[in-house]
Design a protein around this nucleic acid. Sequence first.
DNA 1: TTCATTTAGTGGTATATGCCACTAAATATG
DNA 2: CATATTTAGTGGCATATACCACTAAATGAA
Lengths: 152, 152
Amino acid sequence: MSKDTLPGLTLCNNAALRRSARKLGQFYDDVMAPSGLKATQQGLLYQIHIGNEPAMGAIAASLIMDLSALGHTLKPLIRDGYVETFADPGDRRIKRVRLTPQGLAKLEEAMKLWQIAQQRFEDVAGKEQAQRLRAALDEIAALDFDLPPATP
Amino acid sequence: MSKDTLPGLTLCNNAALRRSARKLGQFYDDVMAPSGLKATQQGLLYQIHIGNEPAMGAIAASLIMDLSALGHTLKPLIRDGYVETFADPGDRRIKRVRLTPQGLAKLEEAMKLWQIAQQRFEDVAGKEQAQRLRAALDEIAALDFDLPPATP
DNA sequence: TTCATTTAGTGGTATATGCCACTAAATATG
DNA sequence: CATATTTAGTGGCATATACCACTAAATGAA
């Protein structure tokens, strides 16, 4: 494969995805900056909020995130008093998560900024296009890449 | 806004993007693992390879990545001897980047795995769907979110 | 009931990525 | 030419995210 005939980077689905994620992340983060939250943190607070004191495993599964990564990501939010955790009374392995009152207030503050970013994105990209994009992304998130097991 | 009427997380373009990026990243990384490279590293080596001893700024711009982030990301690749840098003779502020012979060999090794991941993705997602997805992602990457300047 | 196995998280380590303050080099300005 | 400004990177710090080895708790099997 000579250098001249190499396919563009854009051909890699994963690279294209990361590239746009950086772009969009920078934009959302920028708009959310006044709240002091990153877009990822706002998303996480939101996910906790809409869950019913969700277990860490449940949050991680929803976000398709490694459980330990979730643990790490949660730390600054706990440190800043936005989130607290408690052991499930029925199964002490399970740690549940909830927003503190300050966390809820911060989320509400951040949601206003989120709406601005979201609106701006849809204005620029087009509402139809945005919806198609999200649908495509959700499809990817739902894919199963496992090779079919060799039926013995 | 009561908890019951809150929109699903999927409504956030940025959150949906990150979620799929995690999913797809895990898959590509998994397939590429035998090479010892992460998918991001393979992508970066590739970008360097197709460039003409590109300057760091040029790489960062192509990948829509912060320049300092690129610097950090490059470090393990330099440490492992896959990449080397040198000052541009004409402008000593500019640092150019190239693959070492080992870097090229490693890239070629990784590309074989990449093709497997890429192929598998397209088999599962559908070639059409994959192409539409990349097109949509490229559109996002090309968007301009700046507010129109108030013409004074 | 006892022991093996599975499940849920933690902590460590490493990469990915961004922002900010700072330096050096090039360029524009007076 | 001397200084102000812009450009290109660096280094520090913080978050994002993954994998691995490990622990504790629950569960299943003998």
